[in-house]
Design a protein around this nucleic acid. Structure first.
Length: 525
DNA sequence: ATAGGGTTAG
């Protein structure tokens, strides 16, 4: 729940200026623009101060006043004040003003109050394109992507660029690549005036869905490319782990494109966060020394730490970590899990204590790192203690990945019976990742009897993922049990997994192919 | 003078 705004932060000087304005000319056509200026200023709470003054005097406000005030409430997360304004709108007789209704819609969606937003929408007699866009984007941002698309389908006014951007962001959340491609086609056929933001939204959908051929073609054909376009396509390569392509594009951007911003750096470093990408990562690191305008604390510093630990350069990661003045939960989680991945489990646990000393509370992801640290380093007692304290002390509920870590921990230590007993004692049914961890342990320790038992259990389970079956198949193949390996492959094909395998394996396939447009300074015009 | 949209780390 966002805090109510305090007006104490307003200086006396500002207050007296506003009062002077108010006394000198208490007419809406003077005060409303002032209200608008204050709303988009560095101190939107001063807008609410002026609004309070205006509301006290009927001649000083009109219907415009409410839209400005609601915008200030959306900025400020001033939920209570916004509902108060809503009540006043209803009393004032302006309840059918579509500008005010749209402002209310936006206000409620910003506060993730989907129910109130929907109620407002239902009261609008003739929703216009802004009302519809507001609903589509609001539903999408609140996690109701399917409902957002459903609204878009039934809207009875012509959409514009903003509407399409909103529905594309819903498609992004659902990985609805084909729906997005249909929108792309519709735009190409029917629209002449397309904003760069709309091209960027299509680009983002393609990038997030791993459809890099489409993204790259669009990127080259777009009439212009801004920093969002470059950042988005680099992010697409990052998702697929293609660091060579990402770093090439980044260097191209430095030559012919706009100035990179923090998001660009985060994306390109994320692309370099894989084995063998240290040289690319260090190239970006060197570039950063020419950009003292980027604050190190926050995403840029964290992304550097992540890159170095993933590339195996722990000392460099610690060097960056030491330079950070304020470390957030992502810093701590990155460095602890990174140390764990590089075999420094004890060091990871020490930093966990330090994190607590700094007053940062661990979350679910922190514990995945810690538990895997214990697993990697054979620190089984510490791991079990952490798992037990996770919920009891830190209020973090165990998820499948945590259970899988514990099974992995037992498994690595050769305690296969304990691992299996742990799975059977779980309060929720284990999924493929948990059974897979046990299977892996059986394979490592050559326990064929348990392997067979787990296999039977797995194949009968509906929650088993393609990855687990692939692991099973590979495990058989590893023991040269080819018939068993093939049987599992057949089970994968027949067991309703075809679709799943198709969608997740095909789309992530190679990125660069022959028919792609070569990206050069010339083609960028 | 009034309303809606895009890239960011574990």
């Amino acid at each position: 729940m966002p805090p109510r705004p305090t007006f104490a932060a307003l200086s006396w000087r500002q207050i007296s200026q506003i009062r002077a304005h108010f006394i000198k000319s208490p007419q809406p056509h003077i005060l409303n623009p002032l209200l608008g200026t204050l709303t988009s200023s560095a101190a939107p709470h001063s807008a609410l101060h002026l609004y309070n003054l205006m509301i006290g005097l009927p001649a000083a406000h009109n219907h415009y006043t409410f839209t400005y005030a609601l915008k200030a409430c959306s900025f400020l997360q001033a939920r209570h004040k916004g509902t108060e304004i809503h009540a006043r709108v209803l009393k004032s007789g302006h309840w059918s003003d579509v500008f005010i209704q749209n402002s209310l819609l936006h206000f409620y969606f910003v506060h993730e109050d989907v129910v109130s937003a929907d109620k407002v929408f239902e009261t609008i007699d003739f929703p216009d394109v802004v009302s519809w866009t507001c609903v589509v984007s609001g539903l999408s941002r609140c996690g109701f992507e399917r409902e957002a698309i459903d609204k878009f389908v039934v809207m009875d006014v012509k959409p514009n660029c903003s509407t399409l951007i909103s529905v594309l962001s819903a498609c992004c959340g659902l990985r609805e690549l084909n729906y997005g491609r249909a929108i792309h086609g519709y735009v190409l056929r029917n629209w002449s005036e397309v904003t760069i933001n709309l091209w960027n939204a299509i680009l983002d959908l393609y990038a997030k869905c791993g459809f890099l051929v489409g993204a790259r073609n669009l990127f080259v054909k777009m009439p212009e490319r801004d920093v969002f376009s470059w950042t988005t396509i680099i992010g697409g390569y990052a998702i697929l782990g293609c660091h060579e392509e990402a770093i090439k594009l980044f260097q191209e951007m430095l030559r012919v494109g706009p100035e990179p911003n923090e998001a660009t750096i985060v994306n390109v470093l994320s692309a370099c966060s894989s084995n063998g990408a240290l040289a690319s990562g260090e190239w970006v690191y060197t570039y950063l020394s020419s950009r003292p305008d980027f604050p190190l604390d926050g995403p840029v510093g964290n992304a550097q730490i992540n890159m170095f630990v993933k590339c195996g350069d722990v000392d460099k990661a610690i060097h960056v970590y030491n330079k950070l003045e304020s470390k957030d939960i992502i810093t701590w989680s990155t460095i602890t899990s990174g140390l764990a991945m590089n075999g420094r489990g004890n060091h990871a646990l020490q930093l966990f204590s330090l994190m607590l000393v700094h007053g940062v509370s661990p979350d679910d992801i922190t514990f995945i790192g810690l538990l895997s640290a214990c697993s990697h380093s054979g620190l089984i007692n510490q791991g079990l203690m952490l798992f037990e304290a996770m919920d009891r002390v830190y209020g973090v509920k165990a998820q499948m990945q945590h259970y899988a870590c514990v099974v992995d921990m037992y498994g690595k230590a050769g305690l296969l019976e304990k691992a299996e007993a742990f799975i059977r004692a779980m309060p929720v049914e284990a999924d493929g990742s948990v059974w897979g961890a046990l299977l892996n342990a059986c394979k490592i320790h050559g326990n064929e009897i348990m392997f067979e038992r787990v296999r039977k259990r797995l194949v009968g389970s509906r929650s088993v993922s393609v990855g687990t079956l692939a692991l099973l198949s590979n495990a058989y193949a590893g023991c040269e049990r080819w018939e068993d390996a093939n049987r599992v492959r057949d089970e994968m094909r027949l067991g309703g997994l075809k679709k799943m395998a198709g969608s997740s394996w095909v789309e992530v396939s190679p990125v660069i192919n022959g028919d792609e447009v070569e990206l050069t300074s010339a083609s960028l015009g």
